[in-house]
Amino acid sequence: MALLEVKDLQVYYGVIQALKGINFEVNEGEIVTLIGANGAGKTTTMQSIIGLIPSRGGSVIFDGKDITKTPCHKIVHLGMAQVPEGRRVFQELTVYENLLMGGFSQKDKSAIKQDIESIYERFPRLAERSSQIAGTLSGGEQQMLAMGRAMMSHPKLLLLDEPSMGLSPILVDQVFEIIKDFRKDGTTVLLVEQNAGKSLAISDRAYVLELGEIVLSGTGAELAASDEVKKAYLGG
């Protein structure tokens, strides 16, 4: 059964229709990527699924429940997390406090401490900067923090919105390695990326979004080999 089912999802900004009824699904254990140009509706899709912006039609089914009208904070408690575009770590809080915020939906205090320890093992840089204000971190460190923060809630489904944006090539590779690690640990991933090549390479399946509509779908390898995708997104 699909962990996430998006059916005929429609989102408007005022009178402008940003999503024109898109359909896709993410099965448990998969990495699924949405690729598309600027303005295609990728971030809108991500924010609408998790309830940050309201939809005007269609439905979102997560883990067997209809969450179309569920407010964002409740969806997070159901086991979905998102690393938003631009990372959006809490600039005025320390690295440690940011991770604590990530564990907001968790009740057990000692488990939260252990989770932070394991995130520090995965990202040793964050451990070094534990008591540093997050606003002073570099872009790469902030991305690690945003990913660690999202993992604090033990999500079944993790939405990653442009995690490689603005990072140096070495860090981009590192981010994609981490995404693969997430899947290894049993987290299902829905990824939005402009870096189509790298994201298709790690994806089980992918969809191409153009002006609010899904125009292509297939396995990561199929799409990477398709002429249309090559021309539009892979630079050749």
């Binding site: 309830g51 904070h73 408690h77 770590v89 809490f90 005025e92 809080l93 939906s105």
Partner: peptide, 18 residues
């Protein structure tokens, strides 16, 4: 701490489950 988070970024705060 949730108050600080909300004052800084409402959307990100909601993503934490606040």
């Amino acid at each position: 701490r949730a108050m600080i988070a909300v004052s800084e970024d409402k959307g990100a705060a909601q993503l934490m489950g606040i």
